[in-house]
Design a protein around this nucleic acid. Sequence first.
DNA 1: TCGATTAGGTTGACATGTCAACCATAAATA
DNA 2: TATTTATGGTTGACATGTCAACCTAATCGA
Lengths: 152, 152
Amino acid sequence: MISEEEMQIWHIWKSSYKNIFGRVVKDMSEQTGLSEGDFGILDRLDLYGKGKLRQQELAVSMDWTKSRLSHHLTRMEKRGLVSREPLETERGVQVIITSFGKTTLDDARPVVSMAIRKHFLDFLTEQDIESITKLAERTKTNSSSPCKNSPS
Amino acid sequence: MISEEEMQIWHIWKSSYKNIFGRVVKDMSEQTGLSEGDFGILDRLDLYGKGKLRQQELAVSMDWTKSRLSHHLTRMEKRGLVSREPLETERGVQVIITSFGKTTLDDARPVVSMAIRKHFLDFLTEQDIESITKLAERTKTNSSSPCKNSPS
DNA sequence: TCGATTAGGTTGACATGTCAACCATAAATA
DNA sequence: TATTTATGGTTGACATGTCAACCTAATCGA
């Protein structure tokens, strides 16, 4: 169905990603104690929500299922990184970064930046950047959502 | 430490990978019942070993830890995809694809090929291929292994 | 107004991964 | 030869993910 060379490209692409990504994650977790998920969540709470976000928005933003997020938040809560409380106005849950979470995040930012530069950005040419950007465009989710708001 | 745009590239690169890879894996698992790991293992047994490989070689080839492989093989054994038996000549374990594993693999190959073409190859330009290949080269593990054989 | 849906979350079971500890055998070295 | 050390694997505990079932509070339609 597909040629040797084509299969090669696939394998190279996969392992290249796994290598680079793995190095960044390793630096991050070793030097900050945060996983990529932890960091993503804290980052969004801090930047998009000034410290708090509704659980559902967080799920969308992370592109995670509600179940996955729920489990993850439970663990982060135990570690003291975030807290949860019911919304007042409507139903739903507010996720709030704790002060411990905030300082952990602040400490982590430079580490993460450094890791991304060292293991990823430093290797990119202009061509790579263009290639990455365009490929992402081309393969983007076909979000012409199936008739959600279509005039029946 | 790093600019908005640089962070953007990182995010785009990550999500682009996750999207494409996720689609391929989803097709594969839905249509064949195999995970990527399952397929990788069966594929290697079939191609590199004519049906059997030493566990350790398999681990290297998959770039997995021995622990991870051991756990995974235990599960695959339960499902009847592979079997294990001790080596005769030296110590160690032979991993052998069962006939059920072999037919499952044969059925899976075209599905996997199709998925890779549909979700990945079809979107690649010549430039992308060059970019992917070269970036992989540039970021390849610096395998000048730390003094394994260095003259003290 | 009442029943059916939808939205927002939680939970438990199970699959998958990681890590450190362990065990046995082979090889190297004192 | 006796003691280390390296090799090849297994195991158990625990972190992380997925899936389906469940619960409750809106909301929609007849």
